[in-house]
Design a protein around this nucleic acid. Sequence first.
DNA 1: GTCTATATTCTGATAGAC
DNA 2: GTCTATCAGAATATAGAC
Lengths: 194, 194
Amino acid sequence: MARTTGSHSDITGPRIRDAALRLFARQGYAAVSMRQIAGEVGVQAGALYNYIPDKQSLLVELMRDHMVELLAAVPVDPSDAPLVQLEAFVRFHIGFHHARPDAVFIAYMELRNLDPANFAEIEDLRGRYEAVLERILRDGAEVGAFDVPDPKIATLAVIAMLTGVTTWFRAGGRLSLGDVQDQYWDMVRKSVLA
Amino acid sequence: MARTTGSHSDITGPRIRDAALRLFARQGYAAVSMRQIAGEVGVQAGALYNYIPDKQSLLVELMRDHMVELLAAVPVDPSDAPLVQLEAFVRFHIGFHHARPDAVFIAYMELRNLDPANFAEIEDLRGRYEAVLERILRDGAEVGAFDVPDPKIATLAVIAMLTGVTTWFRAGGRLSLGDVQDQYWDMVRKSVLA
DNA sequence: GTCTATATTCTGATAGAC
DNA sequence: GTCTATCAGAATATAGAC
């Protein structure tokens, strides 16, 4: 099939998203210009608008893709014991987030730059993810495996602790990802155990 | 002493900082314009430059003030037992940060908008604060009061968990600040206890 | 599909009157 | 100390040639 000269629709779109993800994470959404994104991709600023309606859509798509991917990947099996589910969740959260530092950063830092409707959508997705952990903690508390007076608070505490790993951990340093997962799992386990 | 007409140097300066703190926290440094800050204060944009050399200085001053105040307020007493020091630290961190949500938000979110020299200064202050907690955990581990294989990691884990409170806790809701402090202290205590 | 060119608005910061 | 006016540049987004 013949192509218009200079046509790269199949690769330019993803490259725009990749460049935006990297730049938004490093400098922040508001500080990144469309010219900068275009420059990274190697096209002119005007060409971006063949792929996205506007800058805001670019941001919300990156955040939505991340959250949807996260929700689809949670490995929790409800037929397992709560302690087993919790360990799976902790190790998964650290591993998944470590593999996507830019997306994580954006998903947590750029919420305030979303339009109200977009904000509501992303917050709903985040709520569903938190609900997975809250379910585990609540079930564990009910069967007496955990000592968690308020599963809602414990959920937020654990997620904040785990997500913090992305702000400092880089592979190749003193500790491996497995070391970090082991130590965080140890702390989480002890903090909720009866 | 006679004053030039319209002179308000004693109050305009602090009001500029207050407005900038609030706006930076809500919209982000890059998304806030000098005109917006001036509008909040009730002066024209040009008048701001009687008080600050530029926008970057305004940001770094807000962050420095917050970090210096934080360091000066840590209530830890080295003559106390590690467990006592840890409880004081946990309750203090939650209380202090809850009282200053805007400053906390800026101090954690706007690091990437600092010039390299300013970034180094703020990071140094943050490191000193983290060192307080790390010292407590290390001392406790050495005397056998805590089971903390890596005090550095435990420090980052605890601080991330505690700071997360500022993202969701608002007074007047289901739980009091004291409830939250109690529950977080319970989780931290159990997570590090031998 | 990408380009150049541009419309329009906004930005941080400055100059000089009062 | 604050004002008005303005500079010089950058922002998002669009129009039309190729």
